[in-house]
């Protein structure tokens, strides 16, 4: 007996503290890229899911970003811990691109609390080759190259791992939320689509 194909739905995590909705164009842009490059069945519109809600378990990948403090309530931490323990994947991007910033400080602390230690993800990790090849690791963003934020070009993403060795939390200080925050139709003005790494994240989340 088979089961009907369920489209992948891009979910943005909503948390009580801070500004969870700081990058509203990223979901549509990544959905566009998924359709543009893959045959993955994908819903044409993303959803917003409360991190404390049981609806979180309906989505294999949840994206969170923000500039302000990222503090999880007890309910959010409990649900998120169960979500990650059951195979969910969380992608958190620091919209401040600042390792000295408040989002980074609070988010990394909260993520360690719910998912264990965050370690540098080797640039040979399958997430960099599962669809498009990124031999040098995570692609740099224009914000890094322009010297904004912490004035660093981060060589690695960070990750927390599930017991089976797969990535359960992917943490970025590179501000992909700014890099990918534009209308999908504007891709035609780019010589190289900078959302291709987002496709890798989705493909990795679905096939790991």
């Amino acid at each position: 007996m088979g089961r009907a194909v369920t489209p992948f739905v891009f979910a943005t995590g909503k948390y009580q503290s801070g500004d969870w909705d700081a990058a509203p164009l990223v979901p549509a842009n990544l959905i566009d890229s998924i359709a543009r490059y893959t045959s993955i069945a994908v819903a044409p519109q993303g959803v917003v899911v409360d991190l404390a809600s049981a609806a979180l378990f309906d989505y294999p990948l949840v994206y969170c970003t923000g500039h302000l403090p990222f503090r999880l309530t007890t309910a959010e931490a409990t649900t998120l811990r169960r979500y990650l323990g059951r195979g969910g994947m969380l992608f958190v991007d620091d919209h401040n691109h600042d390792v000295g910033g408040v989002f980074h400080a609070t988010a990394t602390e909260e993520l360690r609390r719910v998912a264990g230690p965050l370690v540098d993800l080797p640039n040979t990790h399958p997430i960099y080759s599962c669809f498009f090849a990124f031999p040098d690791g995570p692609p740099a963003t224009s914000h890094e190259l322009n010297g904004w934020g912490d004035n660093l070009v981060h060589a690695h993403l960070q990750a927390a791992f599930a017991p089976d060795g797969t990535v359960s939390v992917l943490y970025s200080s590179k501000d992909y939320s700014s890099e990918w925050g534009y209308h999908p139709d504007a891709k035609r003005f780019q010589s190289v689509d900078n959302t291709r790494f987002g496709v890798n994240i989705v493909v990795y989340a679905l096939t790991r």
């Binding site: 979901p27 959905i31 543009r36 490059y37 893959t38 044409p44 519109q45 999908p184 190289v192």
Partner: peptide, 15 residues
């Protein structure tokens, strides 16, 4: 709220 026209963009990427 952006609704992506999947039929229009499906597999049109050049990467």
């Amino acid at each position: 709220a952006l609704v992506v026209d999947l039929a229009r963009v499906r597999l049109t990427g050049t990467g």
